[in-house]
């Protein structure tokens, strides 16, 4: 098992680097000069200033040399300096990534805690009210655009009913807990600051629910159909014939067999939650990676775009790896084969 994981990890890293090459080439086909776009009107009209800034980011060199600069930095743990923020790209990513990871992880937890049970119940009580409820929830989740859902939730729970806290990660003007993981909930607990912990948790609920909506819909539907198939199998009839509790039949016999497609989908969905939170982050004023990515793309900030690509590619590849490994755990035949 371990050599298998090691081999896959190394391959995953090189695939992530290959992904940056693709993005690098696409970005350079756009007929825009990021330096001219970044500089003010006066500075952009000064050829010396333009030349100095182009040289600073290696933009005066050949494409191949520019990509080599990126690779060379990468193997020294340096992702370069952003043209727009003028800070290290790694520094920027470390600044924004925890907010997004915390949000995506909370959303993923909601998906597992709500979507999975809802799908299972829908399959057991097929065509009863639970099933109808699940159908409505998943339909709304899959069909409603995120920005619409986000704003509706904010207007209703924050603006109208006034039971949700303000947008942002903490109350306005609150000071963040000492930085350890960058997850405010965990950092607040580590610091023993329960007020901040509850505040961070309360601020997390609504954006996480909105972000989770579409994935939750997908997982509910998949779990339901996959469970229905498993529940119709002979081994389930045998289990029932043995006189087991229904809970034991469902949890011990049907569920493990039904989980394989759900896990495949879940892995990709988690990666997507992290990479696709731009809308949710904008409306909930969440200082995450999504907005940073958007800003970098608009400004053609090459170092930042490459850095974010690398991170997103690594997340996808790691999730794929995790999915493969969990297959082996769920289905022993995968390893034996």
């Amino acid at each position: 098992m371990l050599p298998y994981i090691a081999k896959r990890s190394v391959a995953a890293f090189f695939m992530a680097v290959a992904a940056t090459l693709a993005v690098f080439l696409i970005a350079h086909m756009v007929p825009t000069d990021p330096i001219l776009a970044m500089l003010g009107d006066l500075a952009a009209a000064n050829p010396d200033t333009v030349a100095r800034f182009r040289a600073q980011w290696g933009l005066d060199q050949s494409l191949l040399a520019q990509y080599w600069i990126f690779l060379d930095g990468l193997f020294h743990g340096d992702l370069g300096v952003s043209i727009v923020t003028r800070r290290g790209v790694l520094e920027d990513i470390l600044q924004y990534a925890p907010a997004t990871f915390e949000l995506a992880t909370a959303a993923a937890l909601l998906v597992v805690l709500v979507g999975l049970p809802l799908g299972i119940l829908a399959s057991i009580y097929r065509d009863r009210w639970v099933d109808h409820l699940a159908r409505v929830v998943s339909l709304i989740g899959v069909a409603a655009p995120t920005f619409w859902l986000a704003f509706l939730a904010l207007a209703l729970f924050y603006g109208g009913l006034q039971i949700a806290p303000s947008p942002g990660r903490l109350g306005i003007g609150d000071i963040a807990p000492p930085h350890v993981t960058g997850f405010y909930t965990i950092d607040a607990l580590l610091a023993g600051d329960y007020d901040t912990f509850y505040s961070a948790l309360a601020h997390l609920v609504m954006p996480a629910a909105v972000l989770a909506a579409s994935t939750l819909g997908l997982i509910t539907r998949t779990t339901r159909s996959s469970m229905l198939e498993a529940l119709g199998q002979d081994y389930v009839r045998v289990a029932r014939a043995k006189g087991l509790f229904e809970a034991q039949v469902v949890a011990g016999h049907a569920l493990p067999n039904a989980l394989i497609p759900v896990v495949t989908l879940g892995g990709l969905a988690y990666a997507e939650l992290m990479a696709g939170a731009v809308m949710t982050e904008s409306i909930f004023a969440w200082p995450g990676l999504g907005r940073y990515t958007y800003q970098s793309a608009v400004a053609l900030d090459f170092p930042a775009i490459l850095g974010v690509t690398l991170v997103v590619a690594i997340i996808y590849l790691l999730m794929n790896l995790a999915v493969d490994v969990s297959y082996a755990l769920l289905d022993p035949r995968v390893v034996r084969r």
Binding site: V84, T85, R86, R87, Y158, Q162, I163, A164, P165, S166, G171, I172, G173, Y198, S199, L201, A202, H203, V205, R291, Q295
Partner: peptide, 27 residues
């Protein structure tokens, strides 16, 4: 607990001024 916290979070001191603004360009 969520609902109660929601309320708590608004208790804001009167000698603090809060401005809402798009500061994404600040570098």
């Amino acid at each position: 607990v969520e609902a109660k916290l929601g309320k708590l979070a608004y208790a804001k001191s009167a000698d603090t001024l809060v401005i809402g603004m798009d500061i994404s360009d600040t570098n």
